[in-house]
């Protein structure tokens, strides 16, 4: 097991290297750089070009990338031209808020999706099944930033119950978390349902029923445990996306997380910050996917056995 985990972590390194290069390359394609961002109109175009030459901005991409990675190894991801602070420090000051939102989001999603998905599967082809499928379909079809705005209109502006932006009190997380969660739930309902349907027809549940086990235990203990792997994968993917900052939702609720930091960096042409945010975000979601792979082993003994050997 330890060896497997170790191997997975090692495997992450080349992938992260490649991903960071791709990110570096794409951001480089975008017009404007931080010289423009910092000096704007203070310097003439010639002066700026001189500065670029001096700072090595005109070197070939690969050389600049190598220089960047060299610094990254020492924990230096450069300095934001807008905030005048180290990228690493900025990112991690915003990360807790994103983590918080991602956590509550997936909790909301699972609380909605797992019971609904199970009920739909157990009562397949009944009214309740169609109803939850339609609900899921609606959730999937709705842009979640719009849903967020509708929540704001209802709960903040009309009823005045909940704050609509920022992260001031514990109630602030409710609306963004519901927005993120409902979007994720829509996908998870389907996964849960189809995964449960697959399991529900298995012979071993008949064995369990024949033992005199009550139906609740049959479904929630025996069947769900078997149906969990696809659900974990889907939930994990969703969580990974949310960890990268639900850019749009964070923007709707002015949530001070990494998603908003990234999009603000784009808008201010803060190239160093953009590259840093993208690399860190991708790294986090890759690490999360790896963790999920490892979690499987604990849910399914068959997979565990494969890793052991």
């Amino acid at each position: 097991m330890h060896r497997y985990v170790f191997k997975r972590i090692l495997l992450l390194i080349p992938i992260m290297l490649a991903v960071s290069f791709v990110v570096y390359f794409i951001v480089d394609l975008a017009p404007g750089d931080d010289i423009d961002a910092i000096y704007g109109n203070e310097l003439t175009a010639e002066q700026k070009d001189e500065l670029r030459e001096e700072l090595g901005y005109n070197d070939p991409l690969v050389i600049r990338y190598a220089r960047y990675m060299g610094k990254l190894l020492t924990g230096d991801m450069g300095t934001s031209s807008f905030y005048h602070e180290p990228v690493m420090k900025l990112y991690f000051s915003k990360f807790p808020a994103t983590l918080n939102l991602a956590f509550w989001g997936i909790i909301v999603a699972l609380l909605i999706a797992i019971p609904l998905g199970i009920i739909a599967a157990v009562h397949q082809n009944t009214l309740i099944d169609s109803a939850s499928m339609i609900l899921g379909l609606l959730g999937m079809s709705m842009p979640n930033f719009w849903f967020g705005l509708m929540l704001i209109i209802l709960f903040s502006l009309t009823l005045g119950w909940l704050p609509s932006f920022g992260n001031e009190s514990w109630t602030s997380v409710i609306l963004p978390a519901v927005t993120v969660g409902v979007g994720q739930a829509a996908l998870l309902i389907r996964t849960t349902r189809s995964s449960m349907l697959e399991v529900i027809r298995q012979d071993y549940l008949r064995t369990v029923r024949a033992k005199g086990v009550n139906e609740r235990t049959v479904i929630y203990h025996h069947a769900l445990r078997n149906a969990l792997i696809p659900i974990i994968t889907a939930a994990g993917t969703q969580l990974g996306i949310a960890l990268g900052g639900s850019v749009v939702v964070e923007s709707v609720f002015a949530w001070p997380g990494v998603g908003k930091l990234t999009i603000d960096a784009f808008n201010t042409r803060d190239t160093t910050l953009v590259v840093g945010c993208l690399i860190l975000t991708t790294a986090f979601s890759s690490i999360l996917m790896m963790l999920i792979d490892i979690i499987y082993a604990f849910v399914d003994p068959r997979i565990k056995a494969r890793y052991m050997n």
Partner: peptide, 24 residues
């Protein structure tokens, strides 16, 4: 397939933002 593995962990909205801003 490795190339695909490299692109897919980049959060899609952010990747799209990168491309959209790269091409105007």
């Amino acid at each position: 397939m490795r190339l695909m593995d490299i692109i897919s962990p980049i959060p899609s909205v952010l990747l799209a933002i990168c491309i959209a801003s790269a091409f105007g």
